Each structure stands twice: as C-alpha cells, then as structure tokens.
Simulated scan of single mutants.
Amino acid sequence: MKPRRWNPETVAPPLGRYSHLAEVPAGHRLVFLAGQLGVGPDGTLAGADAETQARRIFANLEALLEAEGAGPEHLVKLLTLVTGTEHLAGYRAAQAEVFAKWFPDGDFPASTLAVVAALAGPDYTVEVEAIAAVPA
C-alpha cells in the first residue's frame, strides 16, 4: 500500500506536478529525508546549473528511500528551494524527467516550491527535502 494522494474539486487544480492532499495509510512510519543538495556520494557538486544539481538531488532521494526499503511511490511531501527564478526552468526540466519515471500515472506527492535568496553555500542552486510513508 502506498500513500493516498488526490486533488479535491473544491480547489483549483495543481499548477504543476503535485497533489493538494496526501494521506499516510495505517501501518506506515513517517521517514523524514533531510534537504538534499546536488552533491554526489564523493562530496563533489554535480554541476553548476540547477538541472544537473536537481538530477543528482533526485538520485540522492532515491538512494535514501532505497536504504529504508522504500521507493519514490512512498513519498508524501516534498519541499523544494531554488535560489532564484532563473533556476526554475532547469529544476522543472529535471523534475519532469524524473517524475515521468517515478510517477508515470501522474499520482504526485504534495509539494511546495519556494524561491529563496540563498542556500548553505554560494554554488548550490536547489535543495529538496522530503517526507515518505514507509510500510512498517
């Protein structure tokens, strides 16, 4: 069983790849994934642009989920921070590519996307944290 995600007709449809509501089913535990940066296992930045960093971030999230015996289908909520509107197109391109693989049926997790002044270092353009509902 995976989280239930949906969009009630009482609010406008989502403006992007997300659901307005997500519910954790009984028998699941919540796992909180720390904000991920576009850094590979060896600690090096994947690239200077948001698209490359976002691809690495999604790979990191997938690896963290796998470490918990879960996968992207268990994601309940994402919070994405992007360091300027000029990085939105790159982030969205990577997200579209990854989400087409992760959620081919369009059953997206709840999500928030915010443009911020800066992240933990000047070379980081995107950070994504997540919450997953993993079967107990």
Rank of each mutant, 00 (worst) to 15 (best):
D42P: 01
K101H: 07
L61G: 10
W102Y: 12
G38D: 00
K77Q: 15
L113D: 11
G90S: 06
E129Y: 03
G40I: 10
T44S: 15
L21Q: 11
G121Y: 02
E97Y: 10
L78F: 14
V115C: 14
A63K: 08
D107Y: 04
V128F: 00
A22D: 00
K101Q: 11
L75M: 07
L37E: 09
L37S: 11
V126W: 09
A67Y: 08
I57Y: 08
V82H: 00
L81E: 12
P135S: 10
T112V: 15
R17K: 14
D49T: 06
G16Q: 04
R17D: 11
L15D: 15
L65F: 15
A96R: 04
G16A: 01
A54F: 07
A50S: 10
Q95T: 12
A22P: 05
D123K: 11
A70W: 07
R5P: 06
P13E: 00
P72H: 07
P104I: 09
H87F: 08
T80D: 09
E9V: 15
E68V: 05
P104T: 03
G47W: 09
A132H: 07
P135D: 04
P8L: 12
Y18D: 01
A46M: 04
A89S: 04
V116T: 12
T85C: 00
L33E: 12
S111L: 14
V126E: 02
R92S: 13
L78E: 12
A26L: 10
P122C: 07
L30T: 08
G38F: 00
P25R: 07
R92Y: 10
K2W: 12
E86V: 06
F103T: 02
R5W: 06
Y124S: 13
G69I: 09
F108S: 01
E68C: 04
T44K: 14
G35Q: 09
F108L: 10
P41K: 13
N60T: 13
P8G: 14
L15G: 15
V39A: 03
G16E: 02
H20K: 09
A132F: 00
G27M: 02
Y91E: 00
W102R: 07
P3E: 01
I57F: 10
A48I: 14
L119A: 11
Q36R: 13
E127G: 05
A133T: 05
P122Y: 03
M1I: 06
F99C: 03
E23R: 09
D49R: 09
V134L: 05
V11N: 02
A26E: 14
S111I: 10
A22C: 09
G121Q: 02
A46Y: 06
A34G: 12
G84C: 05
I57W: 04
H74I: 11
E97H: 01
A132K: 05
E9H: 14
A22L: 08
A93L: 06
A110K: 13
R55W: 03
L79C: 08
A12F: 08
F103C: 04
E97T: 06
V134P: 04
P13Q: 07
W6T: 05
P122N: 04
T80W: 06
G35A: 14
T125N: 13
G16K: 05
V128T: 05
G84V: 02
K2G: 12
A133W: 10
W102S: 01
D42S: 04
Y18S: 07
T10Y: 15
E9G: 15
A114K: 14
V39S: 06
A34M: 13
V31D: 03
D49F: 07
A70D: 04
A117H: 11
L79R: 06
A34W: 10
F99A: 09
